[in-house]
Design a protein around this nucleic acid. Structure first.
Length: 509
RNA sequence: GCUCCGGUAGUAUAGCCCGGUUAAGUAUACCGGCCUUUCGAGCCGGUGGUCGCGGGUUCAAAUCCCGCCCGGAGCACCA
């Protein structure tokens, strides 16, 4: 146990560390093997992250293996798209979920054909040429369709005809014989393999090389056994698929893996459905898969959400079959803990307005820590020279609620001022005092500011897609794309681009 | 409609299988205090749950049994 579950023991010593509940029947297997099996028809989102993180984490917990398996067996209705294979790989790498083996189902058609034949040979299936509608009527009344009764030899002949092109799309389908009286009609004689006109609907990887394609329950069911998957972690929409696949396993004399079905995951206000995301992107509702309104991993990454935060959240949510509605605050809280010690602090003045301070008798130098908790990181410095006692600065419109006549306000790292007059685009104030202690005594609020001429124009894209414009301090010009910083009193942002201007994405407060 | 699966504070989660020193823990959110030249972080404290509802078994039930209500998933030649 010490060897296999070191993390479990470690968790005992450190109870604050969240640990997943043990996997069932681990002792039955020499090694735990899990898999994540996406259809490469879209990028990954927060919901997909659940399957990835849990499958990966469990494999690691038991020193097992984690596989990535692309389930790209529908060239027609849920067409795989080439670029998504790579984007999914990138998402997994970003999450830190390295896979030990990669499998692509469209490379494995011959294997599925072989097992289809074996299934027909053992009498576990049949080739059905009924119209879907007439078949459905039969099955709903627990009656076999005529094809089911045909002898094995005929089934094999029909199978050959599926392969050699004698049957066209929709004309024949391989079904797995189950129980015609099964209480759930959806389980009765489910379809395993169908024909697709790949001249019309070529597969992005293998083109029109194959016309006969397995359905989910057949290919996925076979592969889970063939690849030695011991624990399947997937959404509860697959609950009845387990029932179906068990019939297949019985014909081959296999044991079904341990299957865990978790509930649906939602996050307040964000679309988490692949089809809706795709539609929105295609229609231009979203500016792409990285649109900040989307909960795709690309978008989260772009916004400065860290993979660690996503992983933590997924471990927290766990594998329960209940539906969960996450709130962004929860994700943000995890992320903030990770970001806060790393992010340097800078000033950003949104929608700047002028602040004129009179009675400033000498030049001042403001030195501000890059990070208040780590003074060793250094400073940013503002040199401020008044002209004839007048110092002009820029402050944020959003601080107008603090800048009321006669109020004393401290300019961070500088001095205290007393507001005199407030106009729409101009605040006039006078020098009040110098020390922080004085400001503290007066309970003066602290605000940030910028020298009037040296700011870098900055656009911040907010999570709702809107933008806020303003000026960032000069030293932000040396930031690089990908840096996550904190604009003090504004929030964390991730830098997207720096040239003459800065483009940043808002992470959270 | 049919077949399954669930229901613990605003959100998420632990405990339920092996009923009792925890008559409900943790995280986050919220409120207050301390600290701090950020409305951030940190530290301390607090509010918040009749464990879906009703009944039963028991000395004792969030934990076992039954009924009800509510929610979800599936019922494709999709994955």
């Amino acid at each position: 146990m010490e060897e296999n579950w070191p993390e479990l023991l470690q968790a005992k010593a450190k109870p604050e560390k969240k640990v997943l509940p043990p996997l069932p029947n681990v002792e039955k297997y020499s090694k735990v093997v899990t898999r994540f099996s996406p259809n490469p028809d879209c990028v990954l989102h927060l919901g997909s992250a659940r399957a990835v993180v849990l499958s990966w984490k469990y494999a690691k917990m038991y020193n097992g293996e984690f596989y990535l398996r692309f389930e790209d067996t529908d060239p027609r209705y849920k067409r795989p798209v080439l670029e998504f294979y790579d984007l999914i790989r990138e998402d997994l790498i970003w999450l830190g979920c390295r896979w030990d083996k990669e499998i692509i189902q469209s490379d494995r058609l011959e294997i599925y054909y072989e097992y289809a034949k074996r299934l027909l040979e053992v009498g576990g299936g049949y080739v059905c040429t009924c119209q879907p509608q007439t078949f459905k009527e039969k099955i709903l009344s627990c009656k076999p369709c005529p094809c089911r009764e045909l002898p094995k030899e005929t089934q094999l002949e029909r199978w050959e005809k599926m392969l050699d092109g004698s049957f066209g799309e929709g004309e024949a389908v391989v079904r797995v014989k189950t129980d015609l009286n099964h209480p759930n009609p959806a389980v009765r004689d489910w379809p395993a393999i169908r024909i697709i006109d790949t001249k019309k609907f070529p597969h992005p990887r293998v083109g029109d090389k194959y016309r006969v394609w397995p359905l989910y329950n057949f290919s996925s069911g076979l592969d889970d056994h063939l690849l030695g998957i011991t624990h399947i972690i997937r959404g509860k929409e697959h609950l009845t698929n387990e029932q179906r696949q068990r019939f297949l396993y019985n014909y081959f004399g296999w044991d079904y893996p341990e299957a865990i079905h978790y509930g649906r995951l939602k996050i307040t206000g964000a679309v988490l459905s692949k089809s809706e995301i795709k539609l929105g992107v295609e229609k231009g509702v979203y500016g792409g898969y990285g649109d900040p309104r989307l909960a795709t991993l690309i978008a989260l990454r772009r916004r400065g959400i860290t993979a660690e935060a996503v992983v933590r959240l997924m471990l927290e949510v766990g594998v329960k079959p209940v539906d969960v509605t996450l709130s962004w605050e929860n994700l943000y809280a995890y992320n903030r803990k990770i970001l806060d010690p790393k992010a340097d602090r800078y000033f950003f003045v949104s929608n700047p307005i002028k602040l004129e301070v009179l009675n400033v008798e000498k030049p001042y130098t403001a030195k501000l820590h890059l990070h208040p908790d780590y003074p060793e990181k250094g400073f940013r410095v503002f040199q401020l020279k008044p002209e004839n006692g007048r110092l002009t600065l820029l402050v944020s419109t959003s601080d107008l609620n603090l800048l009321k006549p006669e109020k004393v306000v401290r300019l961070m790292g500088l001095f205290n001022i007393q507001v005199k007059n407030v106009e729409e685009k101009l605040v006039k104030a006078v020098f009040h005092s110098e020390t922080y202690e004085e400001a503290k005594k007066l309970h003066a609020p602290l605000i940030h500011y910028l020298p009037p001429t040296k700011g870098v124009k900055t656009v911040v894209v907010m999570p709702d897609g809107s933008t806020i414009e303003g000026l960032a301090e000069e030293s932000c010009g040396k930031l690089k794309a990908g840096d996550v910083i904190q604009f003090e009193r504004f929030g964390f942002v991730k830098i997207e681009k720096v040239n003459q201007e800065i483009l940043a994405y808002y992470t959270h407060k």
